[in-house]
């Protein structure tokens, strides 16, 4: 089995300082770490590899110094590191980032075998958008499993995967076809400590370094600032959502009963909707 894990090198938010005079973030001298959610993704990937065999390729996009995070990932136990770095990627938003990463995953597939699973963290701690994982899934037409707490089963013969997904109000058990993309939640596995052999290999490994061209990206207008339509207009704390999502258990019930249940619950919280629908129905 081939698994690709996308990681990002981010500033250690615990050590970020705001410049007391200019109020800007002081990045200089702030240590960088692997995005913590990505580490859980890496651990889950390594767990699957140890269980089912195969290899884990770690992919990151960033400046040349992001090499450090790949070496760290190799030191934890990954088999191969790919650094995607090019000035064309500078200033990428989530759209451009997912484009570049998707192209790189495609190229990784061509080079070392098409991955059955692509992992990302739930989100990064410096951008917090949680859009890049789904973006990659969409571009590569992968099944999309977000907010996954654990991979329960991978059936390579029937090409299915079963995961636990943490959603508002409960845990869902989801089963889908592979290849799939998983965005991983924190705290459900314990990231391992690499052995001496792992860390030595990590320190010495020849990393694969691709630029836009070698990653097979011919149209750089989709990359970097040029490929990034996002404009930050305002930064604000969003209002909390009014109500919590309600989970409706499927159980052994037939579809009709479930549909009735859904409608009844909807009407219970939206009496106005019920009245409006009834009026419309009466008009016909």
């Amino acid at each position: 089995m081939h698994i690709v894990v996308c990681i990002k090198q981010v500033p250690d938010s615990a050590q970020i300082r705001v410049h007391p005079v200019t109020n800007t973030i002081m990045r200089q001298g702030v240590p960088t770490i692997i995005n913590p959610y990505d580490l859980f993704a890496l651990e889950e990937a390594l767990r699957l590899r140890d269980w089912l065999g195969g290899e884990v390729t770690v992919l990151t996009m960033g400046p040349p110094m992001a090499e450090e995070s790949l070496r760290k990932a190799l030191g934890i136990g990954a088999d191969r590191g790919v650094l995607l770095t090019d000035r064309f990627f500078a200033g990428s938003d989530t759209l451009a980032t997912s484009y570049a990463l998707a192209q790189a995953v495609r190229k990784i597939g061509e080079t070392w075998g098409i991955p059955e699973i692509v992992f990302t963290g739930k989100q990064t701690i410096d951008g917090d958008t949680a859009q890049v994982g789904p973006g990659i899934a969409r571009r590569l037409a992968l099944q999309q499993l977000t907010y996954v707490a654990a991979v329960q089963e991978v059936d390579l013969e029937n090409k299915t995967i079963t995961v636990l997904r943490r959603a508002e109000g409960g845990v869902q058990e989801l089963k889908t076809a592979i290849p799939a993309l998983i965005t991983m939640l924190e705290g459900t596995n314990e990231v391992r400590r690499g052995t001496i052999a792992d860390v030595l290999r990590g320190a010495r490994a020849e990393l694969v370094v691709w630029n836009a061209q070698t990653a097979g990206i011919t149209d750089v207008s989709n990359c970097g600032l040029r490929g990034s339509p996002t404009v930050v207009k305002r930064v604000f704390a969003p209002k909390p959502r009014a109500t919590k999502a309600v989970q409706i258990e499927v159980g052994d019930r037939d579809m009709g009963t479930i549909a009735e249940d859904v409608i009844a619950r909807l009407y219970a919280v939206q009496p106005a909707l019920e009245a409006a629908l009834l009026r419309t129905a009466a008009a016909y």
Partner: peptide, 9 residues
């Protein structure tokens, strides 16, 4: 010897 598995170095 270190606190990691494997070795000694």
């Amino acid at each position: 010897r270190t606190d990691r598995q494997g070795g000694p170095l």
